[in-house]
Write a protein that binds this DNA or RNA. Structure first.
Lengths: 239, 239
DNA sequence: AGAACAGGTTGATTTGCCTCAATTCTATCT
DNA sequence: AGATAGAATTGAGGCAAATCAACCTGTTCT
């Protein structure tokens, strides 16, 4: 990771500039506070004690861990519907930062715990979500542990496409820097840039601007990702 | 990964040689079948449809994913008390193989689901376990994405120590090959061997036999793992 | 318009880990 | 004890990705 990231220790005080827009109850009667965060604001930091749970309403949040010397590993991108901070530990062990403008609902821990006890459907949803997060994390471990630079990059582009593609144009607006991408796939930003431009030169993706891509040859991109074939890939990503 | 692993496709038939020793009910009245597996037998394969849940009674099980060309990423080691195959998907997306002699209790899916619905304490335990698995997987992602060979190896030895140390002798019997270790930390077996022997030469660990270690200088091992200090490390591993 | 800046791309060089190969160690079998 | 086999260690060389550095592009500010 990278010079521009300010090293932040768990004990630093921090002032959340989140703005509460309104308070309401969801379909299960659980009270929620709608909050807004601007890009680069933190929902919470590694080391903070958890006070409740967030559900993303719009925008995307990155979850990451930092090493003492500033190396960063991004662990997940949370977007609409995802829950954050589902922890039973006494401190958060990763940080959550708004990548874009973000709206989230905050549910205080006691309300969340009550809903989990009393509402079977809610509970089932949380279980499924935790299972999905675990799968995603283990898929990332395979990528980080055993894939080469091109495979990592291609896999990541398929991931972006599956989650953020505009269904009418087929384009993905990449709302993150090369550095963010690199910190997810465990490479440097230069290597990510090289791999993307190589895919462009090979006619596998279109890259009209640096943060806008479209997959023009999905089969070859899947092959470049190290997946045996499309059917197999679909089962991995789950679409 | 490595020549000696036989590539196994999800569709291959397989005969489980597991032996049922007896059937009983646990404290919650959930029916369980006690099964035994010998080293290298599989509890299930990636691609199999899940039929229930396993809880490890003794021994250790490795969870891993395989790529089409045989590259392997080990994702977790399950030992006493751990649950396996907690999935809501229609197929397993990793394989589970006995590393040692293993005893597990098998709980059919319907019984498990019922216990989850009806028993709050059981449910809480499962939630906590899923949270722990997610934390472990994300910690592994940091290791794989951002740590160098020595840091990975040192981190792994600390992990082994925290889970498998003999409290009286202080030794850890490593019940896996260098290849298994390498496939967990995303290196080759040769690199793992080099790093371990380097730690031995530096007097940080004792290595009287290739599969038996003791940490003789924990502070330096923690430093080699890239953790800022012991307190921080303890909070990461959770002891 | 020009300056300043941030992000992205591209090139040259270095390096850490992998690969391939040889040797040693340990356990098992006869 | 000697033979054999599997695993671990050690060494030499190669290569993929990191590092370091220059340049380009687009945007904001004056």
């Amino acid at each position: 990771m990278n010079a521009q990231t300010i090293l932040r220790l768990p004990t630093d005080p921090h002032i959340s500039r989140a703005r509460t827009t309104h308070t309401h109850r969801d379909g299960h009667g659980v009270p929620r506070n709608r909050l807004r965060f601007a890009p680069h604001e933190h929902l919470f930091f590694q080391g903070d004690p958890p006070t409740g749970v967030f559900q993303v309403v719009s925008g995307t949040v990155i979850l990451y861990k930092l090493m003492a010397d500033g190396r960063r590993q991004i662990q997940d991108f949370s977007s609409v519907g995802d829950f954050l901070a589902l922890t039973f530990a006494d401190v958060h062990n990763f940080s959550a930062e708004a990548l874009t403008d973000v709206e989230v609902d905050f549910i205080v821990q006691a309300s969340f715990d009550r809903a989990l006890q009393e509402n079977a459907a809610f509970r089932q949803g949380i279980f499924t979500l935790m299972g999905d997060m675990l799968n995603a994390s283990r898929e990332q471990a395979l990528l980080l542990g055993r894939k080469c630079a091109m495979e990592r990059t291609a896999t990541f582009l398929l991931f972006l496409d599956s989650r953020f593609v505009d269904p009418v144009t087929g384009f993905v607006d990449i709302r993150m820097s090369r550095c963010d991408m690199a910190d997810y796939v465990g490479l440097t930003l230069e290597t990510v840039s090289r791999m993307m431009n190589q895919l462009k030169r090979q006619g596998i993706i279109e890259l009209p601007q640096s943060n806008r891509i479209r997959i023009s040859d999905r089969k070859r991109l899947i092959a470049a990702a190290g997946e045996p074939d499309e059917a197999e890939y679909a089962s991995v990503v789950g679409y």
